[in-house]
Amino acid sequence: MDFYFGLLQIFGVHTLLGLSAYVVLLTGQVSMAQAGFYAIGAYAAGAATAMFGMHIIPAVLLAGLVSAAIACAVGFPALRVKGLMLVVATLAFGEMVRMIFFNLTWQVERDGALVGPNGAEGFRAIRYFPENGWEIWQVTTLIWIFVALVMAALWWMDRTRAGAVLRAVGHDEVAAQSIGLNLTAVKVGAMTAGGFIAGIGGSLYAHTVTHIEHGIFGVLLATFAVAYPILGGLGSVFGTLIAVLFIQGFLVEGLRFMGDWRSLLFGALIVVAMNLRPKGLLGDTPLRLGGLRRKPSSTPALQEAD
C-alpha cells in the first residue's frame, strides 16, 4: 500500500512541476528554468523546517515566495530573448542553481547533530513528517490538497482576463503589443507565478524524500517539466495532470516489467503520442465554461481553420 501512496506523491509533485511550466508556456515561452525553481523551493523549505523548526505549511508557502522572487528577478533579463535563445538562457540558469547547491555548505546544530545543505553530499534529514508522526496517507493528502488548490487557482485564472491575456501573448506577440499589452510585465508575471508553483512542488518533494542533492535537479527534470504541459496540451490544467499520469504512471511504472526495453519504449511511445495527438493529449483549445456551452455547429469550422 505504501508503494501506491509513494507513487501518488510522485504524481503530485510532478504535477506541480508541470503546472509551473504550463503557466509560462501559455505565453509562448519555453522555460528550462523550472527545475531550478523547484530546487530552490526544495532547499528553502528543507532549511525552514529541518534547520529552523518551522511548521510545514508556512515553510511550503515561504519556499514558494522565495522561488517566485527569484523567478521574477530572473524573468526580467531572461525574457528579453525569445525562442531558442530563451531555452539556452533558462537552461544556463537551471545549471547555475544546481552548481550553487553543489557548492553550498550551510549547516546548523540541532539536537546535537549538524543539519543543512552539505555540498555535494546534499541536504540530509529533512525529517519533518516522520518526526511529527505523519502517516504516509496524511502526507499524500497534504500534497494533493496543494495540487488541487494550484489547479483550481489556474483554472480560475484562465477564465479571467489574465488568462486570456497570457494566451493572446502566446498566440501573437506583435498583435498583443499593438493592443497595448506590456509584454515584459505579462511574461515576467507568468514566470513569477510559475516560480511560486515550482517552489511549492519542490518544497513538498524535499519532505517526501527527506534527502535532496543537486544531481536530481538537472536538465532531465527541467525537460520533464516542459514535457508534461506540451504532451498533455495547453487547453487546460488537466492536460498537464493527464501527461504526468501517462509518463510517470504508465511509461515509468506501468512498463517496469519490461526491464531494459522500457527506456526504448519510453521515448518511442512519447513520439507516437505526439504524432497521434499533435496538440497534446487533451488538445490546446481553451476549455472554459463558455466553451462548453458553445453550439456544436461551430466545432467543424474550428477544425477547418486550424
Binding site: 494566451r167 493572446a168 498566440h171 501573437d172 506583435v174 499593438s178 483549445t285 481553451p286 466553451g291 481553420a305
Partner: peptide, 8 residues
Amino acid sequence: IRLFGNLT
C-alpha cells in the same frame, strides 16, 4: 490580419 485565433 493578426487576430488571436485561439480566443473567442
